[in-house]
Design a protein around this nucleic acid. Structure first.
Length: 371
DNA sequence: CACTCGTGGCT
DNA sequence: TAGCCAAGAGT
């Protein structure tokens, strides 16, 4: 089967599909904190949090975030560190900075007046085709699809789309397929109904197409090939990185380094890491000398190594696996040179934004008791 | 376009 | 366990 003329339904079938989907949604829509109204700020915050993140994970973050930054103006004016702290543990931290950038764009560039179309919304930081479609349809009634993983899965099954959804060019295929299916009077409800459908009867792991409200429109169910859709190529394995994690202690607490503003865990705080690939030696005793030299050159601090016992911590990201060997050291409280770092007392660990990998290091050291 | 960028849940 | 998956965007 080709991708030509995928949407071959006659108008009466389109109308029946819309009614079946929306009737179900009217009766069984999930009650979610960001669905209490259609305020574009509420929709924007929730959608940014929901990018690549499950609903159940987002809910408590959304509640806290709204209590702390209740309006787009409040978010625009907040310290970036506070926004990152509110995002701690949610992952994909660039979303937090971009969300605040978008808020500042709305307040400053748009004089507080929201752009109301999907095209205009995509000029905002962190808002791409999906999120723009979601805000435009839900908050402003634009008849535009919001194509996320749910929409890909739902419509791939309904129409037996053979295009690989991992390929960026496939996006246009689905846009052309979905666009004529959207009811002009309820685009936002349509898009949200597709998402609810994609998380229940048409989920990835436990689909129940037999009882789906749109079963009669599901070609993959009709043909007994639900499991074949969507078509999606696999991702490569995580690459292994090995680090020494320096546990540097002084009278002022532990030394935390702020990560660079680009790349992994940007702007968050961690123990200083030394990439073992940067070392020229392989013997442990020689490596410690090298680590000490490298660290002192960038921090200005002299280290006195202290035996922690052999502690190793492993953490897997989407495409990287970090294997860290902890090294204990004592140092005096002196001025730090080039390294963006600060001493943090144990009781203050909760005041800075720490990634989950750092919390694992804390736990390995028994420093998470007060957290 | 291919790659980067987190985390938690589930099998 | 290792792999896959989840309301993607930026470069």
């Amino acid at each position: 089967m080709t991708n030509n003329n995928l949407m071959d339904w006659p108008p009466e079938k389109v109308a029946a599909f819309q009614q079946a989907l929306l009737d179900w949604y009217d009766q069984h829509a999930r009650t979610l904190p960001w669905r209490q109204d259609h305020d574009p700020y509420h929709v924007m915050v929730s959608e940014l949090m929901l990018q690549q993140t499950q609903v159940q994970t987002v809910i408590p973050y959304y509640e806290r975030f709204m209590a702390q930054f209740p309006t787009v103006e409040a978010l625009a004016a907040a310290p970036e560190a506070a926004v990152l702290k509110a995002w701690e543990g949610l992952g994909y931290y660039s979303r937090a900075r971009r969300l605040q950038q978008a808020a500042q764009q709305i307040v400053n560039d748009y004089d507080g007046k929201w752009p109301r179309t999907s095209a205009e919304l995509q000029t905002l930081a962190g808002i791409g085709p999906y999120t723009a479609g979601a805000i435009a349809s839900i908050s402003f009634g634009e008849v535009v699809p919001a194509i996320d993983g749910n929409a890909f899965r739902v419509f791939a099954r309904l129409f037996k789309v053979d295009a690989d959804i991992a390929q960026p060019q496939t996006r246009q295929v689905f846009y052309d397929l979905i666009r004529p299916l959207i009811p002009k009077d309820r685009p936002g409800d349509f898009n949200q109904a597709v998402m609810d459908l994609g998380s229940s009867y048409m989920s990835a792991n436990h689909p129940d197409p037999e009882h789906s409200p749109v079963r009669d429109f599901d070609a993959s169910y009709r043909d007994g090939v639900v499991a074949d859709y969507p078509v999606k190529t696999k991702k490569p394995r995580p690459v292994v990185h090995r680090y020494f994690a320096l546990v540097v202690r002084s009278d002022a607490g532990y030394l935390f380094e702020q990560r660079p503003s680009t790349g992994m865990l940007a702007d968050l705080w961690m123990f200083p890491l030394i990439d073992m690939a940067d070392l020229e030696t392989t013997m442990m005793s020689d490596q410690l000398d090298e680590v000490s030299r490298i660290f002192t050159a960038s921090s200005g601090l002299a280290l006195t190594f202290a035996d922690l016992g052999v502690k190793q911590v492993q953490h897997t990201f989407t495409h990287q696996r970090w294997q860290m060997t902890l090294i204990g050291a004592d140092a005096k409280v002196e001025e730090l040179k080039f390294m963006p770092a600060r001493w943090v007392a144990t009781k203050d660990f909760g005041k800075i934004a720490l990634p989950t990998v750092q919390k694992k290091l804390n736990q390995a050291l028994g420093l998470d008791v007060l957290d």
